[in-house]
Structures are given as structure tokens and as C-alpha cells.
Design a protein around this nucleic acid. Structure first.
Lengths: 155, 155
DNA sequence: TATTGTTATACTCTATAACTATA
DNA sequence: TATAGTTATAGAGTATAACAATA
């Protein structure tokens, strides 16, 4: 345990003892892996995440998704249009300015496939963490995430 | 401890119980924070990292840095040129095709300032992890990183 | 033949600005 | 007045292809 954060004088920390560096490299590598896996369902990570949100909260509106995932509304437009063009989601007017988003039957089917990929990805990732650390990494990241200042609170 | 990975049937996992999702969000937020901090020395994260590598291994060549940091050699060119234009690094021919990279005096001074920022960022980040998890997160990430298939082995 | 370095370019992602219309 | 949605565009970051020169 834990003198990894101490640098010997003269010999500076190797990069891979820095939490910030590790977070970036591990995240990038993991997302690259996930992207490859999601090619099988022809979706990007963000598409999969949006489908998960729509499933979890039917009639969710675009701007709320954007707030949760930190996506500008301007960038939500082509994202949702592509999902709609693929027949995976449907928009139903809530009032004059908002559209509630729902999965189509095809979208629900696609999400089933996708969830299997996501779950396997998740399992594989967790198994690469040695047992003695495994139960700590998610709570640790959640704690960092919970203390990040950001616009929206949930998820 | 640890039933965060279990989803209740019907109620799917919230996103922020997924390791992959947390890695991405925490990494993005942390890098955004670091970018802001590095504005004080007019450097990006990647610039700071490259300066660290040059300091650690004087006469390192561009292609080796690219291999370590997963930066295509084509993209190393403008990166190094900018650092050279700022007077932070110097290139000295090793042979007819390679240039050894070194910090200039100004580069060494800049890196001192930069390292202070990096170290404070690191400390702040670590302190956001509850004590009971703190000694686990770096080893956990190192383990994931160590098992990522990639071109280069070190750092 | 593999490596180093370079130029030019394309693609993706994200950010910004201006705008319309509704709550 | 704030929110929802849209369009168009700019910028960064990254990837690809073609190339020259050296080990």
C-alpha cells in the first residue's frame, strides 16, 4: 500500500503514478475498447448512453439529456436526428416547444443488444482490477464525481 | 461495501454506478479542471506531459514521445514546433534523421512552475477521494492500465 | 526494410453565435 | 424572461496518406 504518491528527490514521479495521468490514459483506452465493441451494433458510446437515458426516463426531453451528459443542445440535434433516422427513437410533442423521447420497438431491441455489450465491457473492465482494490474504485470515482462542480446533479 | 454493481431487475443501473461511465466523466471533468489551471502557464496538458518526458529523459526523440503518449508522429510536429517557438525546448541532431530534445533554461523554469500546478492538481484530486478508498485508486487504475494492450510499454 | 520526420488533408467532436418560438 | 429547439459555423484534436531521407 500507498507510497506511490511519494517521489524521490531528483527522480520525479513517473507519469503512471499520477492519478490525473492514469485517469486520462485509462479512460481513453477503455473508451477506445468500448467503441470497438459498439461497432457491432453501429452505435457510439454517446448513442448508447442516450438510449439508456431514454429507456430509464421515457418522455425525457433533449435538453434534459444534454444537461445530464454535458452535451450542448446544438449538438443534441444531429445526435437525436441520427437515432431517429435509424428508427431507434421517436419524438412526441409534449407541448408547443418540447418533444418527449421514447424508444421505438426497434430501439428497445437495439438497446437489448447494446446492454449486453455494455455489461460485458463492464465485467471485463472490473475483472482487470485486482480483488483487493475492486470494491474501492467505483466508490472512489463516485466521490470525485460527486465533488465535481457541474450544472446538473443527477447521473 | 460493494453491491454497487448489482442492478435490481426492472430498475437498470444508474449510469454513475458503471465503471466505464465514471471513468469517462471523471477523467473529462478532471482534465477540464487541469486545463484551466494550466492556462496560467499557457500550456495544455499534453505540452506539460511532453516537457516532463523531456526532462526525465534528455535527448529523447519525438517518435519515442509519441509512442509513450500515443500521439501520431504527424501530430508531434506542430506540438514540438510550438514548444520550440516558445523557446522551451531545443532540438539537437543525434544522427541524420533523429533530433534529441532538451529543455532550454526557459523550458526548465517553465516546467518548475508547471510542476507546481500539476502537483497541486494532483493533491486536490486525491483529497476528493475518501480516505478508505484513497490508497486503492491509483493501484486499481495502474492495474487496468497495465493490462491495456498498447504499442509501448513504459510510462 | 524499418524508422524518423514532414506536409497536407479529412474527419470527429465540441463550442459559439444568431435565431425562432413557446412556457 | 427563461427555456427548448434549430441552423450554421468555427475550432480543437486526431487520423490518414503520401513522401523524403536515413539507419
Amino acid at each position: 500500500m500507498g507510497n506511490w504518491s511519494l517521489s524521490k528527490p531528483g527522480k520525479p514521479d513517473p507519469l503512471n503514478s499520477r492519478l490525473g495521468y492514469l485517469l486520462k490514459r485509462v479512460s481513453t483506452a477503455a473508451m477506445g475498447d468500448l467503441s470497438l465493441r459498439l461497432q457491432e451494433v453501429d452505435l457510439r458510446e454517446v448513442d448508447a448512453t442516450v438510449l439508456l437515458l431514454i429507456e430509464r426516463t421515457p418522455n425525457i426531453i433533449a435538453s434534459r439529456i444534454g444537461r445530464i451528459l454535458d452535451i450542448k443542445t446544438a449538438n443534441m440535434v444531429p445526435l437525436l436526428r441520427k437515432l431517429e433516422d435509424k428508427g431507434l427513437i421517436r419524438r412526441e410533442p409534449i407541448d408547443g416547444k418540447s418533444n418527449g423521447l421514447q424508444l421505438t420497438a426497434a430501439g428497445a431491441r437495439k438497446l437489448s443488444e447494446t446492454r449486453a455489450i455494455l455489461d460485458e465491457f463492464e465485467r471485463d473492465l472490473e475483472q482487470r482490477v485486482p480483488e483487493e482494490h475492486r470494491d474501492h474504485i467505483v466508490p472512489a470515482l463516485q466521490a470525485i464525481w460527486a465533488t465535481a462542480r457541474r450544472s446538473d446533479k443527477k447521473s
